[in-house]
Design a protein around this nucleic acid. Structure first.
Lengths: 202, 202
DNA sequence: GTCTATATCGGGATAGAC
DNA sequence: GTCTATCCCGATATAGAC
């Protein structure tokens, strides 16, 4: 979205908030218009349908995810560092555009067939970036992953979940939560016990 | 649900399937009746409202989750073994009652206030079982977890995700996928590399 | 660019026959 | 226990005035 907050952008943001709160189908255009400070019919001056608004939210989100994760890892060569940067980006972005990412994650079902295909394609592109990092890590033997597809799905599922409960006013800053997740995914809950660390000292 | 497949049970199962496919609000009682082999109005002989069906699906699911996970771990004393059993149960149950668990996970928003409170309470009960295992593991120093709440959420989020993509006709049996997840959560993607294993041999 | 008024449709729920 | 018929409401989308 452009920097200047036009009415069109207000509708966009409020739609994401509303769709997250009530779900796409339970959200009404009257309710959305009300939040945007206009009447129901006026929405059609800015968007051609409710479906279009949903699609644009998802397209915006997927475009950002793909472009920005590539930016985040572009200067790294080490797979471990790439993964750290990618995970951290994923979690942080999901807490910045919380509403948009939530809707993108939860409302795939509500898309028309054509729109569905486009978004799924973008999602595959995004997931492949993570799979490729894991593959590299296996190749350098810095990682050991039996099943790349399962592991990348588990990773993204786990990280996306942060945005469901993250409270920006809470005690823990998001950077620290992201670091928790990185450590958890890299080392598990047993890999950093005293016994392992002692052994690694040798 | 009772063993005998009554019409009431058919409606219940078809509702879970339909709500998963289209979402609660996009599902119609006429469509549900059609799947159950009756006409729309006849549903009200078995259930008092659409909302009641949703609530019963969730109550059934949470009751099963709570009771069965306790059964699964009751003979174990070792926190690591408890966790293995609990994770395996969680994943396997989500692929048995896939539709019911999916709906329970995705349609909290669609519950009435009163029903919402009851289900959230049950979900907290369920999550506490996992948190307690992690706490025990920290106490015995078999695990090392900085943030129990974050870790348990990450775990459940990750495991629940299996049911979104698991294909019972695929190559991998669910028991093997569950084992992948257990290993991933316990050791991460780095904890089982050659370097660590060599160090642990000493 | 926003308003009001309205066309049109479909869904949840009920009533009463069989 | 299931059917048909229907009530009632609310939602998307459109038309035309300002």
């Amino acid at each position: 979205m452009p920097a200047i907050t036009s009415r069109k952008e207000i509708i966009f943001r409020e739609a994401a908030r509303l769709f997250k709160e009530k779900g796409y189908n339970s959200s009404t255009l009257r309710g959305l218009a009300n939040k945007a400070g206009i009447k129901g019919g006026s929405i059609y001056h800015h968007y051609s349908s409710k479906q279009e608004i949903l699609y644009l939210i998802m397209e915006y989100t997927m475009t950002n995810l793909i472009n920005r994760v590539q930016l985040a890892i572009k200067d790294e060569t080490d797979p471990l560092q790439k993964l750290r940067k990618a995970i951290t980006f994923h979690i942080e972005y999901h807490t910045i555009d919380t509403n948009e990412t939530y809707v993108t994650d939860a409302e795939l079902r509500s898309l028309d067939v054509e729109n569905y295909k486009k978004i799924v394609k973008m999602r595959n592109t995004y997931e492949k970036i993570y799979r490729d990092i894991l593959l590299e890590g296996n190749a350098t033997e810095q990682m050991r992953i039996d099943n790349i597809k399962t592991a990348s799905r588990a990773l993204l599922q786990m990280c996306t979940g942060v945005s469901y409960w993250f409270n920006p006013n809470g005690k823990q800053p998001i950077s620290q939560i992201a670091e928790n997740y990185v450590e958890l995914f890299l080392w598990g809950i047993c890999g950093k016990t005293g016994a392992v660390q002692a052994a690694l000292q040798n």
